[in-house]
């Protein structure tokens, strides 16, 4: 196995029905590589939340997953509207999603709290009008 495994995904923001497909793929690959189920669970839930957010709010973007001996790093990058108030977005229950998104089963304001809950490190680099890059790490 090479020192670092890398997976790259382009996340289509125009089709909600495909949202989450990259996370399913990552989960499948990590299972094939026989990682601890609890680690796989944390990584896939955190990435899934981020991926859904990217489709809902930012018209898609890219997802990169890097697996090393020490940690799994997930980097989600988009050129969406940015997040005006990250502190507020981190609060459980706070959401700017519209009703049509709630009808699809999301937008309960649990995305960021969940990403934080399931990872060991979460950084949100965002500029309003330019985009957002989210970095998450799960230690192995």
């Amino acid at each position: 196995m090479p020192d670092t495994l890398k997976f790259h995904f382009d996340i289509d923001g125009s089709d909600f029905s495909s949202a989450g497909a990259a996370s399913v793929m990552v989960k499948k690959k990590l299972r094939q590589l026989a990682y601890d189920p609890e680690i796989i669970r944390k990584v896939s839930i955190a990435m899934y939340e981020g991926e859904i957010n990217m489709v809902i709010h930012a018209n898609g973007g890219t997802a990169d997953v890097e697996v090393s001996d020490e940690e799994i790093v997930i980097i989600l990058s988009d050129k969406g509207p940015g997040i005006p108030n990250v502190e507020l977005a981190m609060q459980a229950g706070y959401s700017t999603a519209h009703d049509n998104i709630r009808n699809l089963g999301f937008g309960a304001g649990m995305g960021f709290p969940n990403m934080k809950k399931y990872t060991d490190y979460l950084n949100v680099d965002t500029v309003v009008g330019e985009g957002t890059t989210i970095t998450m790490k799960v230690k192995l």
Binding site: A92, G105, A108, G111, P113, N114
Partner: peptide, 8 residues
């Protein structure tokens, strides 16, 4: 019916 809640 809220997948957000299931995930949380």
């Amino acid at each position: 019916d809220m997948m957000s809640d299931v995930l949380a």
